[in-house]
Simulated assay, not measured.
Amino acid sequence: MTDILILGAGYAGLAAATNLAGRVRGRDDVRVTLVNAGERFTERLRLHSTAAGRPTADLRLPDLLAGTGVRLEYGWVTAVDADARTVRLDDERDLRFDKLVYALGSVVDTASVPGAAEHAYTFDDFRGAEALAARLTPNSTVVVCGGGLTGVETAAEIAERGFTVRLLSRDRPGTGMTAKAQAYVTAALDRLGVEVRIGEITKVLPDGVDLSGEIVPADVVVWTAGTRISPLAPALTNDEHGRIVTDRCLRSVSHPHVYAVGDAAAVRQGFGVLHGTCQSGMPTGVHAAANLARELDGKQPQPFRFGYYHRPVSLGRGDAVVQFTRPDDSPRRAYLTGRAAVWYKETVTASPWPTYARMLTMPALASWWPHGGRYTR
């Protein structure tokens, strides 16, 4: 029996589990186990909607994996011993593996600025988003820290619900888009009443944020600036951000029996290291599954090749921008705005379960992703 353990049931981990289940269906010499903290599947792409108090789908892993043969184990991973091939959970159970897929992802980095961990809300999971929604009151002034896509979507969604919102960022929102697409983002935030302030966030206080020496008052602070990886597998070779360094086939460079996918992996392509999004995360999960299946058949794993396709951002429920990109994520001239962009974004970032279901029935055909990436084998 070959025990394959997959840690984390986010976009990348669930993609790996469902695709691998489709590839080993009917085999009695392979056991696939998926480990996750709870049974709810977190749609991170929709957490900003949950944080604004809007209802979102309640997807449960037992339902999503029914009939796949994948075993579910619940618990927080506290340590990974890549040499002994064991994983320790918070209830002190040890799970053994022959092959491991590390897909534990990232969390919001609240350690880089004083006070962020103590005074700011984050939403790495549904509970965090729900807690933020419960904290909002009709008279709340909300300060969103971080002008990346998550920060923009969060500020726009909360402002659309009628709250006073200030967005603090080092750069203008929409950085990385063409000038026209960025101007559209700026105009949409202005229309929603979001006040954008540019500067360096140096401290988060109980009632505000220090922005380049000026205190910006706030009833609620939301932190979306940066991510970090939990160092749970010290024996694995990591980069300066804590991500597991992989070879061309997505295996750890120090421990080839460990695959790393999604946000937790430092995956190098010709244009540089992938940055963490579901756009690239799901294909890494699928490719790891394909390579594991090849190894089970006595074949050599294949290199991973990927290129970005778009950069979508919601601007409330009725507006959006989709910036189309080159494979290296640099912007093309083409972009969508308004209702067309909303339709496009909802189509490509709708519930991923139809995609996972197709992996079970047609695992070898998973080469194009509705979440918007170019992936070829």
Rank of each mutant, 00 (worst) to 15 (best):
T86K: 12
T86L: 12
V87W: 02
R88K: 15
L89I: 12
L89N: 12
D90A: 15
D91W: 07
D94A: 15
L95K: 11
K99F: 03
Y102F: 14
S106M: 08
S106Y: 01
V107N: 11
V108A: 13
V108Q: 09
A111G: 13
A111F: 01
S112E: 00
S112Y: 00
P114C: 08
A117T: 11
H119E: 03
H119W: 10
A120C: 09
A120G: 09
Y121W: 11
F123Q: 02
D124I: 00
D125S: 05
R127G: 12
A129W: 02
E130T: 13
L132M: 10
A133S: 12
A134I: 01
R135M: 06
P138M: 08
P138W: 03
N139S: 15
T141P: 03
T141E: 13
T141F: 00
V142E: 05
V143Q: 05
V144I: 06
V144P: 06
G146T: 07
G147P: 04
G147D: 09
G148K: 09
L149V: 13
L149E: 02
E153Y: 05
T154H: 02
I158N: 04
A159Q: 10
E160Q: 15
R161C: 08
T164N: 11
L168E: 01
L168H: 02
S169I: 00
P173Y: 01
G174H: 05
T178I: 03
K180C: 01
K180V: 03
Q182Y: 00
